[in-house]
Nucleic acid binder design. Sequence first.
DNA 1: GCGGACATGTAAATTGTTACATGATTAG
DNA 2: CTAATCATGTAACAATTTACATGTCCGC
Lengths: 189, 189
Amino acid sequence: MALRHAVLAALLDEELSGYQLAKAFGTGVANFWHALPQQLYTELARLEREGFIAGREVVQDTRPNKRLFQVTDAGLAELERFTAAETKPCVIRDDLLVKVQAAEHVDTQALIAQLAERTAFATAKAELFEELLRSMRGERTEEEFLRHGARIGPYLTCMRGLEFERANRAWYERTTIILSERRASRGEQ
Amino acid sequence: MALRHAVLAALLDEELSGYQLAKAFGTGVANFWHALPQQLYTELARLEREGFIAGREVVQDTRPNKRLFQVTDAGLAELERFTAAETKPCVIRDDLLVKVQAAEHVDTQALIAQLAERTAFATAKAELFEELLRSMRGERTEEEFLRHGARIGPYLTCMRGLEFERANRAWYERTTIILSERRASRGEQ
DNA sequence: GCGGACATGTAAATTGTTACATGATTAG
DNA sequence: CTAATCATGTAACAATTTACATGTCCGC
């Protein structure tokens, strides 16, 4: 039941629509959780029904109308309760790691192509996060911002996301080289 | 549908029982995927029914009997097909990150305690992985092992797992310090 | 004798993904 | 005129987690 708390956490700093949330939870600005639009619209409806968020209709001329949501006092209390409760450790589940695990027993050509794709993806995401961090801290140094800056939560989770993507990229690149070389030396035999 | 492929990948190098798989997928030796015993027993039954793995009963004196499973030719072919197919990018979903995201709006005392727990957990896991990597490469240097060693797949995924836990630990420690200092300076006001 | 490790499952509930549905506006 | 972005949902299906169930052996 953490999706609802992720939504609450995302709505703390600003009112957002379902569509805006979907973008954040999909493309990865929200490093702390991932969800598809369908799940978010459903969860927003549930949260509103239960009084944890309140929505207001915003009429737009040029685009379809939208509903912006903000966290209620009950919602904040629920988030407080969640934060104090036990945390279950996070787990890795990655298709690509499964494939690399089997690398010695299968053809690695397609695998190497997929590693290249992921390298590009991780690089782009890392750049996005770097930019995001820069804009969050503004003129201040990181040190200074971490001490006294506002919105420290999003900054910290973004830092973790950046490190994650950097490590991904490094591993993808190294793995690509290793599998390619082994492939080549097998071919030469 | 990657659980089944994760199971196949885990069974490539050695025959394992459901119980042994459960330990590996639970405590994290299998960095590439996570699953609970219940899911594994169910999946093993399905895989056997579909002919992707074959089980054999091993009678034991001192312990309950067990069934060891190995991958069949059909299973290897299925894994080959999976490896060539499209990969969906991995996503982060972590309770603790959600909590840190909300750090500014909730009481951080419990959060800091949870970060300490996670630090200990990540440290232990990193040490486990280091030991595992050492035992896999034996006398060889890492460089040498990566070039020519057998069972390169498990080694590579373990490397990723180690880096992940090291990064976790570093971020947990840094976040603990930052939140603690901010908490202290709020208290002094 | 009690808790933990060994060993294997089923059933119910929750969560997450995929497919289906609709409709306006803007940029190329 | 076609694709992309904005905007919101429902329904069906698949995956994961939690709860229930059972029984032996070993060390303290």
